[in-house]
Design a protein around this nucleic acid. Structure first.
Lengths: 209, 209, 209, 209
DNA sequence: AATGAATGAGGATTCATTCAT
DNA sequence: CATGAATGAATCCTCATTCAT
């Protein structure tokens, strides 16, 4: 088995200055990743863009991979925040309203920083973050499943785990693919239509009959 | 804008020997990509596995990216072959049978070589294959759209392009995610359930009411 | 000619606290040198093991070399103490008893901390301690020479400087090589035999006929 | 236990050109080691002095240590050649003549390239050549022991292994220390005196009475 | 056409040393 | 005096690519 470079942060960065350095490094990494891709993201360049020395970079991150992992983590945390908030906000809503809201949020989330989303998705295997990302996915599934369960009276008889998997996959796929086809899909009317259709499909799938 | 390395094959490889060399190189690249990932796929190693010299590699491929691009192309061609065949075979079938067949085929296609699928997906931006891959996607959409159009009597009123986009996204997403969660999803019963549910969702989405 | 880093201690460390810090640093350096070798002995690590900050390290030692030099000095002083004591103790003894005592002490000295002895020997050129070490060697030679001179009646006619050189070399070599061949030489019987033989050789060399 | 870098040569260097490159690299390493010491011997510099590129260096040597190891090997082979030749040449000689010859050769060997000898001795632990060097030492001991055994009639009763150890240590030490004290010892008269004295000591040690 | 030795720019990482707090 | 975050020159090594044979 290939030895992976370490990816856990080196210090706790309790001091304010340290925290600022760490943030600058993560931000710089994200920016370079988006602008130039993984290959061009050399540690020296990251440090330069972050306005610190390479030495400082290695004071806080034991390897390049650890830096990318930190970016992934930050991104995941941000997304997860949105997902949690949305599901909380949706808790009492009827199925169709809720699904529409989720679809909208998913698309919005993908539109915030699509290039980052893409590059990070590519780098996950390299950083050994598979476990973390799977945990992330599991949490999303669990939350959705929990919501579906709470609405089971409005739904046909269906395994909630399976339903969650199908719904999350479908919603995410539409959002994801929409973002990829930058060319045609950007009009607001188009987005509206996609939200409508996706909601229709998912709700139709979940409702009885 | 960053200059991309050339990615078009250097010669037509008319001679049989040349063809064999080219094939060996593409095959070796695919194998290394799957087994060790992009980082480990050095041109020297690829040449070695292919049983030729680096010099010969550069006789046929002007850059490493060109090689990866060739692998992507070959893979896409194979998939496209399956898609075309399936859609031809499905042409006269009613919607529900057809969708079920498509979902089944999509899942099968993903299960053939999931690691290759994944690595290639990661490498697409690096090889400047975005155009080719988009062309591929467009063809898939067009074929599906054409089929849906031919079955419009069984469907509710809906923009066929949009419908194709949604259906392809949903089907592909389920297949894709299923492949990623290697752990839980491998049982045949599970696969059967997924096919059933996905078919249900897509058909429900397309049918009137 | 390459500029050597400074190697003289920065301050006299008059205060007790300073003295303790200096000692801790020298001790830490010695320990790391023995346990992990010169490469691993980074100033940061030394400071950490010594329980002080790097900054404090540089308060007392102007460079890494100065630290190693201090370790060498301390080691040499310890050895020299033993040599002086032994030669004083041996002063009135007849040649054979004296040589036997010297050989025994030499071997004991080498067995105290053979790894430190070795690492330090390696580092001498790097620390610019050649002068100090030569002075050390000169003192040992002078002391031995002085002893031999005092016993000249029991010896054949021989240049005392030359005799001292030969004797010290031979005795030291046996002790040194014995320590290196850790495998076979550790038994007390073996050590006894080596002492006997070396004494025999040296005394035979010095005595008339 | 610390992982050591690989030290076995990468290719067999069968072709003449390769052989020349390898030789140039070993030679350059030796030269830099002698002139500037281990720290200054960077791989880039070695390659430059050797007149090849770093890439070529790594084509033939997997690490810097491997290069130093090769220098040590070459040096050991040269020394061993001298030792073997001398012992063969000495085979029929009486003890005193033989010892004188051995002492002379030992001193000559040390005077050929004393700085190289020293630097290499320092680097042995770093290159993981301890095993090789011990094998080398064992061979020297065995050869000397074999000679002594063949001359046992001229000697007092004595364990031949022990005698070989003592003699080799003593002879080597004189040669070694002579080389270190560059200042005073270089005169031919001095060398002559040292050879005489050392021979006297060793022969006196071995002969009966 | 094929070979594989040679190239060298470029990248990840370390560590002695400084200096603001 | 002490601290330890920050520095950045320097190092080892890789790998896409070329070209003499």
């Amino acid at each position: 088995m290939a030895r992976k470079p370490p990816t856990n942060p080196r210090k706790n960065a309790s001091q304010a200055r340290s925290r600022a350095t760490v943030d600058a490094l993560i931000e710089a990494t994200a920016r370079i990743l988006v602008r130039d891709g993984f290959e061009k993201a050399s540690t020296n360049r990251i440090a330069e863009i972050a306005g610190v020395s390479v030495g400082s970079l290695y004071q806080y991150f034991p390897s390049k991979e650890a830096l990318v992992a930190a970016v992934i983590d930050r991104h995941n945390r941000e997304i997860m925040q949105v997902v949690r908030t949305t599901l909380a906000e949706v808790a009492g809503m009827p199925l169709d309203k809720a699904v529409r809201r989720l679809v909208t949020v998913a698309i919005e989330a993908h539109r915030i920083d699509p290039k980052l989303h893409r590059v990070l998705a590519e780098q996950i295997p390299r950083t050994g973050q598979l476990a973390e990302v799977e945990a992330f996915n599991r949490e999303v599934h669990a939350l959705v499943r929990f919501y579906l369960d709470s609405r089971r009276k409005e739904m046909r008889k269906i395994d909630p785990g399976l339903a969650a998997f199908i719904c999350v996959s479908a919603i995410e796929a539409v959002a994801h693919n929409m973002v990829l086809d930058e060319a045609e899909m950007l009009s607001e009317r188009m987005v509206k239509a996609l939200v409508d259709e996706t909601t229709l499909m998912v709700v139709g799938y979940l409702q009885p009959k």
